[in-house]
Every structure is written in structure tokens, then in C-alpha cells.
Amino acid sequence: MSTHAIENAIAHKRATLYRMVMPEHVCPYGLKARFLLRRKGFRVDDRWLQTRAQTDAFKATQQVETTPQVFIGGRRIGGYDDLRRHFGLVVHDPSVPSYRPVVAVFLVALLMAGASLLAVGRPLLGPQLLSAFIAFSMCILALLKLQDVESFSTMFLTYDLLARRFVIYAYVYPFAELLAGVLMVAGRLHEVWVPVALFVGSVGAASVIKAVYVDRRELKCACVGGSSSVPLGFVSLTENLLMVAMALWAIAMRGSGWLF
């Protein structure tokens, strides 16, 4: 293709996309690439690779290992991640530490806490909101851990002081956190959830302080499950301290009727 033809294609925002579309498999990255191109104003020549043989032949001809493949002005841009880079967009790297999962958990927990208070006609501002927020956060975090207890326990064992002495604690922890969170939401059995929250929160806080602030170790936090890339540190420490604070506050306010 001539330089003029390439420039003309780019100027008129035309792109060619090769992607797998088979009865048993439609490439999700191909769909994302088409969506992104159209969002950027490109007219897409959407070419389907409908058989495995056709796909393999395309890869061999283009000397590429994966599909989809995007061409703009006759120049190969590459796959979906390459296309994002071409447009100056961020490409997610799961190995890079990120607080995004924790932020998502806390935001959803806060919204659930507020919604639950509105549902029963309670004011949004006050200790009930904090109580509900902590309780829902604990439930969501426990859910994420329970998706893969083996993976969670492996990461948890890298820093938790009690789990390193008694491995069974790494398996019990998510269930204990869920139990405390559910009972906090229900506002029942304070004699159960208060000591549980106080215990796991205290041990957790001590473990984080020892690993991060004393030993200066750079570890990943198992707080949102064993496959997360959340750095161990301030967020995990805050989570544990909030559980301790909630338990102590419940003890101090026992019988006052304010608990959620």
C-alpha cells in the first residue's frame, strides 16, 4: 500500500479487524477491539476467522501468535492490548500492585450500608452507618476469600502470625470474618461476633505491623482473596483496626440500642 493510501485510510478512520468467530468460540478480545475502534470513530472492516484452519493460516501468513489483529492504514497495530497502547490507553497488568479491588469493595459496602439504613428509615449520618459499613465490608471481603480458600490461605500464610503457627487458622479465618459480619448486620448475638471480630482484628493488625512496618517486607495482601495484587500495608491494617474498634465500641455501648 502506498504512503498516500495509508494516510488516506488513517485520515478517514478506516481499520481492518481479523477476529475469531466460530460456532463454539467468539473471541472476547475481538469484540472489545471492534468496540474500541468504533468508539474512536473508525469504520471497521470486520473480517471473521471462522475455522481453526483459517485462523492458523492467518497467523502463519502474518507471523503472529494470537488473534485478534488490527490493521490501520495497512499497518498492523496488533492485538487488543496493542490497540489500547496505540490510542494511549492504560493496559491492565495483573502483576502491578493496585488498590482498585479494595476501593471497589469499600465503595459497594458503603452504598449497601446507606441503602439498608434508608430501607428501615434510619438517618444516614451516625454510628449506624459506620457499623453497617464495617459489617458489609467484612461480608464482601469474606466472600472474596471464600471463592478460593486454598489460594487465600497460601497468601495469608506469608504474613499472618497465628496462621504460621497453626495452619488451620488460615482456613478458618474467612468463615470467622463472614460470621462476624453477618451477625453485625443482623444486630444479633453480640456475645459471638464481638469476641470474634476483636480476636481476628487484633491478630491481623499485629501481623501487618510486624510484616510491613517492623520487618519491612513487601508482600501482597490476601484481604480480597489469594489472587489479588493489593499491597499489604495501610489498607489491611485499617481493615483490622476497624474490626477491633467496632468490637470495642460495641462493648462500650452495650445495651444502649444504637448498634445496627
Rank of each mutant, 00 (worst) to 15 (best):
E24Y: 13
Y213V: 12
S153H: 05
K40R: 10
V103K: 04
V182A: 13
R38T: 11
M138Y: 07
L241C: 12
V70G: 06
L146S: 08
R188N: 05
W258A: 11
Y159E: 02
S236M: 03
S2T: 15
V230Y: 12
R75P: 01
N8V: 12
L31P: 07
G126A: 04
G73V: 12
T67Y: 04
A15L: 07
L141Q: 09
V120W: 10
A222T: 01
L189G: 10
L144M: 13
G74P: 05
V91A: 09
P68S: 00
T55H: 08
E177C: 04
R39C: 00
R34L: 14
S256T: 15
V185I: 15
K13P: 05
I168Q: 10
M243D: 01
L143C: 12
A211F: 06
F152C: 03
A222Q: 03
P195V: 11
S98A: 07
A104K: 07
A250M: 06
V64F: 07
S151F: 06
V167C: 10
L83Q: 03
Y18G: 07
S151P: 02
L248D: 07
L183P: 12
A163C: 06
S227M: 10
I251L: 14
E177W: 05
F133E: 04
A104W: 11
P97E: 03
G30H: 00
V172N: 01
V70P: 07
I134Y: 12
V44G: 00
A142Q: 07
A186K: 05
V64T: 14
E24Q: 15
D160Q: 02
K32F: 04
L232Y: 04
E218M: 08
W48T: 12
P97C: 09
I209M: 04
V224T: 15
S256Q: 14
F133A: 08
E218K: 14
R165I: 00
T16F: 03
F175G: 13
L49Q: 10
R76T: 02
V96M: 08
F234G: 06
L37Q: 03
L37K: 03
K145V: 06
L146M: 13
A15Q: 07
V192G: 01
R14V: 10
H92G: 05
L36M: 03
I168W: 15
L37I: 09
V103T: 08
P101S: 13
R52A: 15
S202I: 02
I140K: 05
A252S: 06
V230I: 11
L183S: 11
M246Q: 13
F260W: 15
R85H: 11
I6D: 12
L237N: 06
I209Y: 11
L124A: 05
I6A: 15
K59C: 11
L118V: 05
L129F: 15
R52M: 15
C223P: 03
L232S: 02
A142I: 07
A252H: 08
R75N: 09
K40N: 04
I77C: 09
Y171I: 01
S202K: 00
S236Y: 04
F136Y: 15
A163G: 15
D93Y: 11
S2M: 06
S228A: 12
I251N: 01
